[in-house]
Design a protein around this nucleic acid. Structure first.
Length: 574
RNA sequence: UGCCUGGUGGUGUAACGGUAGCACGAGUGACUCUGAAUCACUUAGUCCAGGUUCAAAUCCUGGCCGGGCAACCA
């Protein structure tokens, strides 16, 4: 039964839950062999130089999820070894996003917490003859590194004495030199087939203000020198990162071995790719700077703050991360999976309300003048405990323009002249005629209602093909509604011809603003971030940033599945 | 080019020498006061060629194709 997670069900029988991913298999093997005394310690190590996105969520769910599953611990550690790129703004937003996703770290650390220890270890390396100060320019060093087929050449400074190296390194720390004057390098092997092992740089001089250590330091460790040791200090048993760090593992292991400290081990998995969007920090930044999106939290962005604003829930994101799995294969997940995860969550939890996005006036000609009927409407058919509310029915309503056709095709079930439909929770109405404007557009449909059908059913039990949403014109509240579509119009935005900017793949219709839609009055006191299903339209979330009580703004988080639209599309395409 | 790494239905992910399974998608139908949800059924896959074996997605050899590394970034 290897590879299958067995969970006891209530009746005591065992049922296969889900197969183990390769990291879980490694952990279980380690536990079997007692490798780390049954201990599991992971960490999520972002660099505080930008906002977290859905790809980070995968890593967060993995690292924190593993700790949770195996009774271990997971730290949040900021990899802040490059002061010129990092900022507290990001430290704060990252913590907020991790918490929002639903995880609590055991330890909160910064690589900069360990600068002194890291420095001491560097001196030890020098003393052991394993590191030296190189005083060449970056260009010279790059030139000497060689290529895949040619070995590198040694620096003229490679054989400095230990004493001289130590002296120089201490003076580097003391601030005696300008940026770029010297660098500390590991003394490994200039002919190594792994370029990373050709005397990698360990420390560089940077007279820069660090967001945490201030001006205390003017030399900063490189990622490759710092990361493994930080893991080691925190006794991390399983250091999980993405595939592009694969070749770095050699150096990671070299440092820990030469220093003789706790042997954390690095495991790599494939990073998340999603269709119809971009994930790299550089591209995301490009969008923000160019103004193609309104900011990092634009609801079209795959950032966690963007998704949150869009209306995504932590539950949906976690379910998504669980569903996509963890492997070493470079895969691309279909955006539909993400959307499906949201629908799946919101279907069970979101209150149903009625809203009309593109209004068409419907007049009930036989409705008693001035009368208003407050009707019971179920809040969530998936959840009885959600109860019901009252919605006002009157003689002048709005229905969706899409729900009426003067000359309907055969498969159109909704309202058309002479046809009877149900107005959800309201009455059965029959279209008697239409009013057109000078251009011949239908601007009003006129109907009669069946007084005996209150609540939606007629005593004679006759059936109608369609049930439509509606609002009472007099009672409805205006609201701005923002509809979102894929950021890019092709599945892989990177798949463009040579020399063509990927931004040409941006979807010009990724945002559609409906300045004035009509929503039912029960939404009057909706709180920012609250989520609703606008019946038959999709899931919507009250925008937490732009919405005001006097001007509500709803974001469409995701549409409902729409069999009718799909059928039409197929029809049109055929 | 050198090294590392990977290749299972449309998309992901299992199977650890022994019945190629699961999910999403797609299709069909049932049900329905959301053309939603739900339920049922169907669809479709081991990169190629050899070899080992009673038996290969799995092991071996050789190809093919993809990704990564070659920053004083992480």
């Amino acid at each position: 039964m290897a590879g299958t997670d067995l969970t006891s069900s209530a009746d005591g029988s065992e049922k296969p839950e889900r197969s183990l991913n390769f990291i879980e298999q490694i952990i279980e093997e380690d536990r079997r062999t007692g490798k780390h005394d049954d201990r599991v310690q992971t960490r999520f190590p972002p660099e505080p130089n930008g906002y977290l996105h859905i790809g980070h969520a995968k890593s967060i769910c993995l690292n924190f999820g593993l700790a949770l599953k195996y009774g271990g611990k997971c730290n949040l550690r900021f990899d802040d070894t490059n002061p010129t790129k990092e900022d507290v703004e990001y430290v704060d937003s990252i913590q907020e996003d991790v918490r929002w996703l639903g995880f609590q770290w055991d330890g909160l650390y910064f690589a900069s917490d360990y600068f002194e220890q890291l420095y001491q270890w560097a001196e030890k390396l020098i003393e052991d003859g394993l590191a030296y100060v190189d005083s060449q320019s970056p260009e010279e060093i790059a030139k000497q590194r060689g290529t895949a087929s040619e070995p590198g050449k040694p620096s003229p400074f490679r054989d400095r004495s230990i004493a001289e190296n130590l002296d120089l390194f201490r003076r580097m720390r003391a601030g005696e030199f300008a940026d770029g004057a010297h660098v500390l390098r590991a003394k490994i092997d200039l002919a190594a087939v792994h370029l990373i092992m050709r005397d990698p740089i360990l420390y560089r001089i940077r007279h820069a203000h660090h967001h945490r250590t201030g001006d205390k330091w003017c030399i900063y460790p490189m990622y490759d020198y710092a990361h493994g040791q930080c893991d080691s200090i925190e006794q991390v048993t399983h250091s999980i990162c993405t595939l592009e760090f694969e070749t770095h593992r050699r150096l990671y292991d070299w440092c820990l071995e030469k220093l003789g400290i706790f042997p954390s081990h690095q495991y790599e998995f494939a990073r998340l790719n999603l269709t119809y969007t971009v994930m790299s920090k550089r591209r995301l930044l490009e969008l923000v700077q160019s103004g193609d999106v309104s900011g990092w939290d634009d609801p079209r962005m795959p950032t966690l703050c963007g998704l949150r604003r869009r209306g995504y829930t932590p539950e949906a994101l976690r379910a998504f991360c669980e569903r996509i799995g963890v492997a070493r294969f470079n895969s691309t997940i279909e955006m539909a999976w993400l959307e499906d995860a949201l629908r799946d969550d919101l279907n069970k939890r979101a209150a149903r309300v009625m809203a009309v996005l593109r209004p068409l006036k419907l007049v009930v000609t036989n409705w008693p003048a001035g009368e208003v009927d407050w009707i019971d409407a179920v809040n969530n058919p998936e959840d009885e405990s959600a109860g019901s509310r009252k919605v006002p029915f009157s003689g002048t309503l709005y229905i969706e323009q899409d729900d009426f056709m003067e000359n309907p095709p055969k498969q159109f079930f909704r309202l058309s002249p002479g046809r009877e439909v149900r107005l959800r929770y309201g009455y059965l109405v029959t279209c008697t005629d239409v009013v057109k404007d000078a251009d011949g557009n239908v601007v009003e449909v006129r109907c009669t209602y069946d007084p005996a059908s209150r609540g939606g059913n007629s005593p004679d039990g006759r059936k109608v093909k369609a049930t439509m949403h509606w609002v009472s014109a007099e009672h409805a509240l205006p609201a701005e509604v923002r509809l979102y579509d894929h950021l890019c119009r092709q599945p892989d935005p990177n798949d463009v011809a040579e020399g063509v900017d990927w931004k040409t793949t941006l979807n010009p219709n990724s945002l559609e603003v409906i300045p004035q839609a009509w929503i039912e009055p029960s939404l009057k006191d909706a709180v920012p971030g609250s989520k609703y299903q606008f019946e038959r339209l999709g899931y919507f979330s009250l925008d937490a940033k732009d919405s005001r009580s006097e001007h509500m703004v709803f974001n469409r988080s995701v549409t409902l599945r729409d069999g009718w639209a799909k059928a039409q599309k197929k029809e049109g395409g055929a």
